[in-house]
Design a binder for these strands. Structure first.
Lengths: 194, 194
DNA sequence: AGTAAAACTGACTGATTAGTCAGTAGTCTG
DNA sequence: CAGACTACTGACTAATCAGTCAGTTTTACT
């Protein structure tokens, strides 16, 4: 079972770094320290390996957020939103591979013809947007947030944060320098009252 | 010269749709209506074809924005920002290929080792962020916008809009439904005074 | 120890790839 | 017409790819 895991870890790294087509099964095998045929013993095809890699990323992201939200207390909805954004940016730096994979084009193309792929992507994005939405709803209740449509507000906040993450992982701009501005912008959108 | 253009147009379409590695020169040739060898007569390698495709996209985006800003008048800085956002979203729907190419991972990977690629990407992003920044600066002068750091404000606005564009071209969410929320969020960030 | 199943591998295949090259057709100039 | 030049092509090559398979090793259990 450990070799299967080694293969999966190598696959995530290579799919993230090179994309689906340019990551070869031979290279996945070499990086995982197994023979080429072993990869096909554990995964029936390259596409199947990719789907398992995506599923692993999905589970990883959801688990990480669950753990973070379990282990932290927040005084208000707006603080919760800020915490989620911080953790999202932290995670995107900590396990960059996951987010590179999520920002590559291939899974979204595959999702058009493969329901399993579509399901993984939907679960990831619904989980993330849900987390933001619950925080917005909480803030609306405790009075720290003003918002009309919680879902749409959550989507805009999420797309902003995800846009900054993209800049980070594609080496376009330094996220650190943008962090304060990002948080302030969110507070303005949510009309946070000091 | 027309065949060279046909090749380039096919290349942009295929690189955008399939990514660099999965778009084959044979397919580019077939779609362009020429023989495989003709592609290599006009472009010395696949990478060189990709760079020319990226340059074409760069020129296209810059020209489109120049034309838009030339042909429109705006009452205030905040109206200008709104116009730019609208046009950005319109363009992303109108020439989706350009933005698919810009959102793919390959050019950013290539940029790490290829100065021409880096230069094209920098010009695209600097142009776009500059456009937002000038609008923010104008709004600050005419009083329609409140912002501390024009550059960082422009970057956050841009990353938000670009994040929404990504959702659109990857078929994640409907941009139309998010448009009003996006504009309102921007107005809040920029503290627009009615 | 015996044995059956699971894990693994080297050697292979057919298909596809980027890129080459020798040669042909068309066009422009004197 | 001569000849030089550009545009173009079919046929090729060497490399790489995903995937297969027959056979070997390792593990699990009695």
């Amino acid at each position: 079972m450990t070799k299967k895991n080694d293969i999966l870890r190598s696959a995530i790294t290579l799919f993230a770094d090179r994309g689906f087509q340019d990551a070869s099964m031979t290279e996945v095998a070499r990086m995982g320290g197994v023979s080429g045929a072993t990869v096909f013993y554990h995964f029936k095809s390259k596409e199947s390996l990719f789907l398992t890699a995506l599923e692993t990323v999905k589970d990883g992201i959801i688990e990480e957020f669950d753990a973070y939200l379990d282990q932290h207390e927040f005084a208000s909805g707006i603080d919760l939103v800020e915490g989620i954004i911080s953790f999202y940016l932290y995670l995107a730096g900590s396990v960059e591979e996951w987010f590179l994979l999520l920002h590559s084009h291939y899974p979204y193309k595959l999702a058009l013809v493969n329901r399993e792929c579509r399901s993984h992507l939907e679960k990831i994005y619904n989980s993330l947007v849900d987390i933001f939405e619950r925080a917005v709803a909480q803030g609306r209740q405790d009075g720290s947030i003003l918002a009309d449509d919680t879902r749409k507000t959550a989507l805009v906040i999420f797309s902003m944060v995800d846009g900054v993450v993209r800049f980070k992982i594609y080496n376009l701009y330094d996220t650190g320098a943008l962090y304060r501005e990002l948080i302030n912008s969110c507070r303005k959108i949510l009309k946070y009252k000091t």
